[in-house]
């Protein structure tokens, strides 16, 4: 649904970087490599990286059924 606030494994706050990550890797005209973006955002551990890489926003999908 919404991006998790923290990494499930280590507790680092990953929600903070979601919008920038989404913007730079998916919405930009010239999408960047997610690996480089995560390095740039300072998300170093693979537990935190998977939180953003594997996330999908679902609010738009469930909104009509409210």
């Amino acid at each position: 649904m919404m991006v998790p606030v923290r990494c499930f494994t280590c507790g680092n706050v990953v929600g903070e970087h979601w919008e920038e990550f989404k913007q730079r890797t998916r919405e930009a005209d010239d999408p960047e490599d997610p690996e480089k973006v995560l390095d740039d955002l300072g998300i170093d551990r693979h537990c935190c990286r998977r939180m953003l890489v594997s996330h999908k926003d679902l609010v738009d999908i469930v909104a009509p059924y409210q």
């Binding site: 919404m2 991006v3 606030v5 706050v13 929600g15 903070e16 970087h17 979601w18 919008e19 920038e20 926003d57 609010v59 738009d60 909104a63």
Partner: peptide
């Protein structure tokens, strides 16, 4: 809040 850009919920 220590971080200001954590999305809490999207509102339509």
């Amino acid at each position: 809040p220590a971080d200001e850009n954590v999305p809490v919920i999207d509102l339509k």
